[in-house]
């Protein structure tokens, strides 16, 4: 039957709740992500370290294993141990972001897909939230979720006293990793929205980490200060994590400064996003 002969009937079935619609974007994105064998194997790789950490935690509590190694060799499970864990998983998360992040918005921009999104009952905030959730959910699975599991495991083995003494570690794992996740995904989305070309966005994300960090060290060396570390993302996050864990950071900047630098970076990313994620572009002529 010809299309025009069909009568028009509006959809009358059930609608999904409005608040959860941004997750549609994440669902679509995951289909692509899990098609790539490279990415899936990388995700598995990211879980090796938590498993190894679990073994390290378990070892002192296993009598059979204790007989094989001398007590001095064992790693004591203290905040420093978790800081190392956070740094390692943080890096793995960064690499994952550099993989997935660049294509998130740039592909839509390059193919003029934004008008399609916004011609539906779908706001810009929901769009950005949807794209962010792609990264946030994946990153959670390799950062704070295994982290808290490790913490729970250690508390279970070491008893309630250790748990109460180290409660701030759980806080650091949860909040510290969320700060990292938000920073990474905002950065990736902003870069991805700023340049339409996926490759260029990927390079920008790398450049933000390496080149800007390099500029920071040059500042430090030439001007003999520590302020350059404020633009070094790794040093900033190390300062924040260390302060949460109650450890001293080697970065030489104060936690307050680090938080400020972080907030500035996030604000900048949000500004970029709000400028670029629009249904149309105005060409100056």
């Amino acid at each position: 039957m010809a299309v025009y002969k069909r009568g028009y009937e509006p959809y009358e079935g059930e609608l999904t709740p409005e608040w959860s619609r941004f997750l549609v974007i994440a669902r679509q994105a995951y289909r692509r992500v899990f098609e790539s064998r490279l990415l899936v194997s990388y995700l598995v790789l990211c879980l090796i370290c938590p498993v190894a950490c679990a073994l390290i935690i378990y070892l002192p509590h296993n009598e059979g294993a204790l007989q094989m190694v001398s007590v001095g060799d064992l790693i004591t499970i203290e905040p420093g141990f978790f800081l190392k864990y956070m740094h390692l998983q943080g890096w793995l998360g960064f690499i994952l972001t550099a993989f997935i992040g660049p294509g998130l918005i740039s592909a839509d921009l390059a193919n003029n897909a934004l008008p399609l999104y916004f011609s539906r009952p779908f706001t810009r905030t929901e769009y950005v939230a949807g794209k962010m959730s792609v990264l946030a959910i994946l990153l959670s699975f390799i950062t704070w979720i295994p982290g808290l599991l490790l913490f729970a495991f250690q508390s279970y083995l070491a008893g309630p006293k250790w748990f109460w003494d180290n409660l701030h570690v759980a806080y650091a794992l949860f909040v510290g990793f969320w700060v990292w996740i938000i920073l990474l995904s905002l950065l990736a989305l902003a870069m991805s929205a700023w340049v339409k070309w996926k490759l260029a966005a990927g390079i920008l994300i790398l450049a933000i980490f390496f080149v800007v960090a390099g500029i920071g060290s040059v500042l430090n060396e030439v001007l003999d200060t520590r302020m350059g570390s404020l633009i070094n993302v790794v040093q900033v996050i190390d300062t924040i994590w260390s302060s949460m864990l109650g450890l001293a950071s080697r970065s030489g900047i104060s936690p307050a400064n680090a938080w400020m630098s972080l907030a500035a970076a996030c604000a900048l990313c949000l500004h970029l996003l709000s400028r670029k994620v629009r249904a149309y572009e105005v060409e100056r002529s």
């Binding site: 490759l199 390079i203 450049a207 080149v211 390099g214 060290s217």
Partner: peptide, 24 residues
């Protein structure tokens, strides 16, 4: 310090990434 900045920053980072941006 100049030599260090030149080798690590200028050669390995600045020129490297600029070349990526321009030549690609």
């Amino acid at each position: 310090v100049y030599a260090g900045v030149f080798q690590v920053f200028v050669l390995r980072l600045a020129i490297f990434f600029s070349a990526v941006a321009i030549f690609m």
